[in-house]
Design a binder for these strands. Structure first.
Lengths: 342, 342
DNA sequence: CTGTTAGCGCATTCAG
DNA sequence: CTGAATGCGCTAACAG
């Protein structure tokens, strides 16, 4: 196969210098219309594609971003929402001329190694960090190592920049209020794990408490348990609710994997959601939709989250300035798993 | 921020030439042990990471591979198995020193554009093609454009190289035989779409027919329908079976999204899998496992498929020679959705 | 075993 | 508006 054509081949064919070709393919305005046309014709004829390595070497940027997937955090590969977020991130990057490189460190310890490699050898210009446990300590290292990042669905306590998340407080308030309005009085909340950091005033628990307060009711402490975003933890917490909380009439579970476990626990205790007890799932994945009776669920705008993260990391790379964090609103999808008592 | 260190900084600090540093970091054996140690020390002290662009420019390879996700084929983003395959592919690539770049062409027409860009501008050295409709015509273009590829879960009619797939004939035979052994006699098969090409003698239908033949039974033509790998098509085909095939006593559905639709159809007709009718799902995703009664399913080795695809594209890139295609075996996961009549 | 020279393909000076 | 010279950081080819 003949070696592919270079900018010099194009220049020769168009009867101009290499620099002029460079101007044309980079949309510099300082080119005469006629010259531009001749160059573009030559580009097409020779099927010229500027070498990304040469370009990257010269310009000291790769126009690509890493997406860090925390392999080994067991909940993640149970999480069908990951694709939606990846898809959104890819779209935003693609629209801005950036490629997406997947980084899948095998263990938590390897995260820094892998990201040092990718960023310091300039394979990527920055990274998007998918939610992972203990990301808060990690992020501080990123700041120290000057790794450019945006974190997705997660930030450390007090971080007010370079993150995208959905407002847990908002959606949890929405769901709790709905359940109370329908007649529920003792709703068990399986909330996000202790180790997960969220921006101030945006925890699920706060939204939950606000809904109770606004309804003039008081929420029992025993009604709130942290989960671990795993099927197992959803199962265990639900069993505890059934055993320890007399008169519990609803369960609100802040993620689908936990909801899967919770549903199994209900089944084993002979309780049918929407019939014997109210149930709201914290995500709206395929499993929720396929189930019968349909689960009333919180829809997190996953694609949008990913998209904003992609847009944000590019802003950051290009401006060099930290970007204020962004909180998105979710919505409640009403199906059959909450009883109507009105 | 001080500009990051180059190979010359390391050379100076170690008191050797740049080339010697290059030898050390590339594991050339022609370096004196003592020199090597001094160089490695300097590398560590300066936190030196060889610039991937400079290296790629010089060596004319990027050590990265594209994974093409056919966005727009609606079934794909319903497919939780995509991550397993991506994960396997990433692992194989990572072990071989390659990065994975995601390519998500928005439409079928953009596939060639996007891949031309990524390969001709040397962003990637080759690509893995995720299953998509009409990939067979696409692949022929790849051959013409000299794009290095391996196709995943798919190949064109007659292609006997550069693909990884699971042997549909094998797993379908396994499932059909099991259902017949348990007492089913009229099993409806919702098989892969017409447009999907598989290596000769490896279609689901062939395995199905063989199982019938071996049992000394004959399979009615009306028992076999092609699906489209979508929820909708599973629903529609199942309704047709129930309406048109008297005495149907089992359904075998070659993918999970189709199975979701099929299950809905059964439910609407008042039929419970494992009680009124036998049912086997063609994949074994979370939804199958979470369901009750548990779905007897075919487990496709998705991670392994991805892994082999990653290994194969690297072999191809490095050797320049086409690699014989690989067919993997799946297995049957027995749960409660097939009645035991023995 | 080690060093020198040259150039990968492009874009950035700085002149015209 | 256009071009000539230079070098980004690395390694292949060729010495020694």
């Amino acid at each position: 196969m003949r070696s592919r054509s270079t900018i010099y081949d194009v220049a020769e064919r168009a009867g101009v210098s290499a620099k002029t070709v460079s101007r044309v393919i980079n949309n510099s305005s300082l080119v005469a219309p006629d010259t531009r046309r001749r160059v573009l014709a030559a580009v097409a004829e020779l099927d010229f594609h500027p070498d990304s390595a040469a370009k990257g070497l010269r310009q000291r940027r790769r126009k690509s971003v890493g997406l860090v997937i925390p392999y080994g955090s067991d909940f993640v590969f149970q999480d069908p929402g990951m694709w939606a977020q990846t898809n959104g991130a890819h779209r935003a990057l693609s629209e801005r001329g950036y490629d997406l490189v997947l980084a899948v460190p095998q263990t938590r310890e390897l995260v820094l190694h892998e990201l040092s490699r990718l960023t310091k050898n300039r394979t990527v210009d920055g990274v998007i960090l998918y939610a992972m446990e203990g990301v808060d300590t990690l992020i501080k290292e990123f700041d120290r190592l000057k790794i450019r990042y945006v974190s997705l669905s997660m930030c450390y306590s007090g971080q007010d920049y370079n993150f995208v998340d959905t407002d847990s407080s908002y959606v949890c308030h929405l769901a709790t209020k709905y359940m109370i309005d329908q007649g529920a009085r003792r709703v068990g909340l399986i909330r996000e794990p202790e180790g997960f950091f969220h921006p101030a005033k945006a925890t699920a628990e706060q939204g939950y408490r606000r809904a109770y307060r606004e309804a003039g009711l008081s929420a029992d402490e025993s009604l709130i348990l942290p989960g671990e975003y795993s099927v197992e933890s959803g199962y265990e917490r639900t069993c505890r609710f059934i055993k320890d909380v007399p008169g519990i009439d609803g369960i609100l579970c802040m993620s689908d994997p936990m909801a899967m476990g919770a549903l199994r626990a209900l089944r084993e205790h002979g309780l049918t959601p929407g019939v014997d007890i109210d149930f709201v799932s914290g995500d709206d994945f395929a499993a929720s939709r396929a189930m019968w009776p349909g689960l009333t669920s919180i829809r997190t705008p996953l694609y949008e989250q990913g998209y904003h993260a992609g847009a944000m990391i590019v802003d950051y790379i290009q401006s060099g300035k930290k970007i204020p964090g962004k909180l998105l609103k979710g919505e409640l999808i009403v199906r059959q798993s909450v009883r109507s008592r009105n």
